[in-house]
Simulated assay, not measured.
Amino acid sequence: MPADGDLAEAASVLRTGGLVAFPTETVYGLGANALDARAAARIFEAKARPSFDPLITHLADAADLESLVGAVPPAVAALAARFWPGPLTLIVDRPAMIPPIVTSGLATMAVRVPDNEYARRLIAAAGVPVAAPSANRFGQLSPTRAEHVVRGLGAAVDVVLDGGPTRCGIESTIVDARGERPVVLRLGALPVEELEQVAGPVTIRPGSSGQPVAPGTLAAHYAPRTPLRLSTAGATDSGVRRGYLAFRDRPVGDWAAVEVLSAAGDLTEAAARLFEALHRLDATGVGEIVAESVPDTGVGRAVNDRLRRAAATWSSGH
Score class of each variant (00 low, 15 high):
9 E>L: 15
17 G>P: 12
18 G>L: 05
21 A>H: 01
22 F>M: 03
26 T>C: 05
28 Y>N: 00
30 L>C: 11
31 G>E: 04
33 N>L: 00
35 L>M: 07
35 L>I: 07
45 E>F: 04
46 A>P: 07
51 S>D: 08
52 F>W: 05
56 I>S: 07
60 A>I: 05
64 D>K: 09
68 L>D: 03
72 V>A: 09
74 P>S: 06
75 A>Y: 07
76 V>A: 11
77 A>S: 15
82 R>K: 06
83 F>G: 07
86 G>L: 09
88 L>E: 07
92 V>F: 14
93 D>G: 01
97 M>G: 00
102 V>R: 14
104 S>W: 13
105 G>M: 11
108 T>W: 12
109 M>H: 06
112 R>C: 12
112 R>S: 12
117 E>V: 10
121 R>F: 03
138 F>E: 00
147 E>A: 10
150 V>G: 00
151 R>V: 02
153 L>I: 10
167 R>V: 14
167 R>C: 09
178 R>D: 10
182 P>G: 11
183 V>L: 06
184 V>H: 08
185 L>A: 09
189 A>N: 08
190 L>H: 02
198 V>M: 05
202 V>R: 03
205 R>I: 05
212 P>W: 13
212 P>C: 11
212 P>E: 10
216 G>N: 00
221 H>R: 13
222 Y>P: 08
230 L>H: 11
231 S>I: 13
238 S>V: 01
240 V>L: 14
241 R>H: 12
241 R>K: 12
248 R>N: 09
249 D>I: 04
251 P>Q: 01
256 A>C: 03
259 E>R: 14
259 E>T: 06
260 V>A: 05
261 L>M: 12
262 S>K: 03
264 A>I: 04
270 A>V: 08
273 R>S: 12
276 E>F: 15
282 D>W: 11
283 A>K: 12
293 S>Y: 15
300 G>D: 08
303 V>P: 04
307 L>T: 05
316 S>H: 09
318 H>R: 14
